[in-house]
C-alpha cells in the first residue's frame, strides 16, 4: 500500500473529493468508489472499450488510467448522457434498432458514439465503423450498432436544423 492522495474529480457534473491510492484505476474509482457502474471492464488492456468514458471532452478507456491522472478532470459516463426523463437520441436509437444484446458493451459504446457524433455529425458507415473501432461488441456483429448511430445522427441533425 502506498501513500494516499487527495483527489478531486467532477463526474457527471458532480464534484467528488476523496483520498485514494494513486494506482487506483479510474474505472474502479467510478464503479466501486462512486457506484457509477455503467462503464464496465472487459479486457483490462485497453482493447475492448467497455470502460469508455469522456474525460475532459475526449473518449478514453478508464481501465488504462490511474485516478491520479484524472485528478482535476471532468468525467462523463453513460449515467450523465441521458436518463429516464431525457434520453439521449443514441439511447433511443440503440433500442429502436436493436443495437445491443447482452448490454455489457453498450454504455461504453454509446458514450463513445456521443463523441463520434460531435467529431463527425453525419458520419458515413465507414466513418462509424472506423470511429467505433475502439469498442468491441461480442453479440451484435455491429450491423445494428452502425444503424443505431446513423439513426441517432439523422435525428440529431434534424433537431438541430429545426432549432436553427
Amino acid at each position: 500500500m502506498t501513500k494516499k492522495m487527495h483527489i478531486t474529480i467532477t463526474v457527471n457534473g458532480k464534484e467528488e473529493e476523496f483520498l485514494a491510492e494513486p494506482r487506483e484505476l479510474l474505472i474502479y474509482t467510478l464503479r466501486e468508489r462512486l457506484n457509477i457502474t455503467g462503464p464496465h471492464i472487459g479486457c483490462d488492456t485497453s482493447h475492448c472499450g467497455a470502460c469508455t468514458v469522456t474525460l475532459n471532452g475526449k473518449s478514453v478507456k478508464s481501465c488504462t488510467m490511474f485516478v491520479a491522472q484524472a485528478d482535476g478532470a471532468e468525467v462523463e459516463t453513460i449515467e450523465g448522457i441521458g436518463g429516464p426523463d431525457a434520453l439521449h437520441p443514441l439511447q433511443v436509437a440503440f433500442k429502436e434498432h436493436h443495437g445491443l444484446q447482452c448490454g455489457f458493451c453498450t454504455p461504453g459504446m454509446i458514450t463513445r458514439a456521443t463523441k463520434l457524433l460531435e467529431e463527425i455529425p453525419n458520419p458515413t458507415e465507414e466513418e462509424i465503423r472506423f470511429g467505433m473501432a475502439g469498442n468491441i461488441c461480442r453479440c451484435t456483429g455491429y450491423q445494428n450498432i452502425v444503424k443505431s448511430i446513423q439513426a441517432a445522427a439523422a435525428e440529431m441533425s434534424a433537431a438541430k436544423e429545426a432549432a436553427e
Binding site: V60, K61, A133
Partner: peptide, 9 residues
C-alpha cells in the same frame, strides 16, 4: 495507430 480512444491519450 490503435483506436480513437487510445489515440486520444
Amino acid at each position: 495507430i490503435a483506436d480513437p480512444q487510445v489515440r486520444n491519450m
